[in-house]
Computed example of a mutant assay.
Amino acid sequence: MRNTISILLILIIYSCNLLQINKSVIRIIGSDTMLELTKHLANEFNKEYPNILITVEGGGSKHGIEKLINGKADICTSSRKLYPEEAKKMVENYNSLGVANLIAIDALSIFVNVDNPVENLSNSELKNIFTGKIKNWKKLNSDSSDIKTVIRNKDSGTYLFFKEYILEGEEYDKNSITLPTTKEIIDFIKENKNAIGYGGIGYAKNVKIIAVNGIIPNAENISNNKYLYFRYLYFFTVKEPEGEIKLFIDWINSPKGQKVVRESGYFPLLNIKE
């Protein structure tokens, strides 16, 4: 009897290992802005394709691009395009410039605590806040409290986007609090009434989104080009996607996948009905 049980256990373990071996694996690394979105997409995709294992890691757009170039990732998630030096390395390693696969649209959003009375800031006010020229909320028709600016790190595509389009290339205030992920920025703002930060709109939970120049980031204002601070989100691959990777990207760009994009708080490439 014991021998029979032992044999059955061995067969079960062997079968489980065999199933694991037969699973295809897609390694995805990159943008923290896209981390929760990509996890959500992978989970929903796996309901239809359970034999494709998808691993998802953050670390920032720069980190993901480096991993893709070095062959440590199959897909890099990125909130920006490749820089010339990154494209050069891609060509040197693979004789390819890489392929940018669009999957969603994001609005760079400005976040404050829900108890902050400020509803709108101009471009110049935002620039002056994050470069340290405006240090107190009193100048912005709020109470006389010191402003706490919260920013992403230099590996983040969002950090660079904000610096280019809001700060117009100027340096961030040296007293800014740097946090590695948008989620941590959101958590900090929820606990600090005087904080202000930025990030992808999909993270806007239990904080207030500030209008910029009187315009809030929503689908209508982005489609009409009224809200200027939107960007495309990418899945980068070394070459044209094939096999399981192509299947996953095609699924994302289908109505099913784009519905998940909308449910994750981002804007779909397709006009998906509720």
Rank of each mutant, 00 (worst) to 15 (best):
T4W: 04
I5E: 15
S24Q: 14
I28E: 12
L35C: 01
L35I: 01
A42V: 00
N51F: 14
E57R: 13
G59A: 09
G60T: 03
I65D: 11
K67W: 02
I69R: 07
N70L: 12
K72W: 08
A73Q: 08
A73M: 07
Y83L: 11
E85F: 01
E86N: 04
K88V: 00
V91L: 11
E92T: 09
V99H: 13
I103D: 14
I110G: 08
F111R: 05
F111M: 06
V112T: 15
N113Q: 08
V114M: 11
S122Y: 03
K127H: 03
G132P: 03
K138W: 02
L140D: 10
N141K: 14
S142K: 09
T149P: 04
I151W: 13
G157Y: 07
F162D: 14
E171M: 03
N175G: 14
T178D: 11
K193W: 00
G200I: 04
G200V: 04
G202N: 10
N206Y: 02
G214A: 06
I222D: 10
Y234M: 00
K239A: 07
E244G: 00
I245C: 02
I249K: 08
D250I: 04
I252A: 08
S254M: 05
P268M: 07
P268Y: 12
I272K: 04
K273Q: 13
K273G: 09
K273W: 06
